[in-house]
């Protein structure tokens, strides 16, 4: 049969991709502080320990504040950029877009240290505010990628029709463009949220004493007896991420269908 070999390869590849995630719940419910086989019994104690850890809860709070702010900010920046590139021709477009998309390839540590030195030099104190600055920067290219495809499938004559029927450019944006790109915006919000929630290096450099969730998790890796709790936490996070992504994907596809376009692929 055609492609049988490819199919087997693809399935092996998926196993490789999912192997670490698949282990998470196994150890999260394993009744042992040592993370290895054989398993020694079922327990939910690691999950219940999560609720008693005040520094964890504080980190969750910080992370949520950061992630929500970042998703809103990055999506706003994404909307401006996507609208500008899909609708207008102007000088220096390539160069400016190249700069805006640069964080996609720039190692995060470079972004983290450069921001850090400047902030220190300015005498600014580190907090979740500075983390928001950095996260917004790295999430924006992703929101632009998503929003670009949403704005691209907009027919320009729809806007002209609304103007022609007496609306101003601002009300046209509200009545026509916004509803049509809304699925893209929702999916962009969710993606930016996920990116921020998951980011470690920038948060580690810029959070000061206000640790975010990944910073907290990284610190726990040094204590072997804390690892099962992290596994439990990881299980919850994975479920959360998958839910968010599924919603995002749903909205992305619905947006494409709504505008009558053809699906061309994933998030990137």
């Amino acid at each position: 049969m055609r492609g049988r070999g490819f199919q087997i390869y693809a399935i092996c590849y998926l196993i490789f991709l999912y192997a670490p995630i698949a282990l998470l719940p196994i150890f999260a419910f394993n009744n042992s502080t040592v993370i290895s086989f054989p398993l020694s019994g079922f327990t939910t104690q690691w999950f219940s320990q999560l609720w008693t850890d005040t520094s964890l809860l504080l980190a969750v709070k910080h992370s949520l504040i950061v992630a929500v702010s970042v998703s809103i900010l990055a999506t706003c920046f994404g909307v401006f950029a996507a609208r500008a590139t899909t609708r207008y021709a102007f000088p220096m477009k390539q160069g400016l877009m190249g700069m805006i998309m640069l964080p996609l390839v720039l190692p995060d540590i470079i972004i983290a240290v450069s921001l850090l030195v400047v902030l220190m030099q300015m005498g600014a104190s580190l907090s979740i505010l500075t983390v928001i600055l950095g996260h917004t920067l790295i999430a924006t290219p992703f929101t632009i990628a998503i929003l670009n495809s949403a704005f691209q499938s907009l027919d320009k004559s729809l806007e002209e029709a609304a103007i022609d029927l007496g609306e101003t450019p601002a009300s046209t944006f509200r009545l026509i463009i916004l509803p049509l790109v809304m699925p893209g915006i929702i999916s962009s919000l969710l993606i930016a949220f996920s990116i921020s929630l998951d980011e470690y290096i920038i948060a580690a450099f810029l959070s000061g004493t206000e640790a975010t969730l990944p910073v907290y998790i990284f610190a726990q890796f040094r204590f072997p007896n804390k690892v099962p709790v992290i596994m439990a936490l990881g299980t919850i996070l994975v479920c959360l991420s998958i839910t968010l992504l599924t919603i995002a994907e749903y909205f992305r596809r619905r947006g494409i269908a709504k505008a009558g376009g053809k699906d061309t692929g994933g998030f990137l």
Binding site: D155, A161, D164, K258
Partner: peptide, 20 residues
């Protein structure tokens, strides 16, 4: 006089029916 203030209306080649 901008387009939205002119006493003209247009039927577009693609019809530009608002899909939503």
């Amino acid at each position: 006089v901008p387009a939205n203030k002119r006493p003209t209306n247009m039927v577009f080649q693609s019809y530009a029916i608002f899909p939503h």
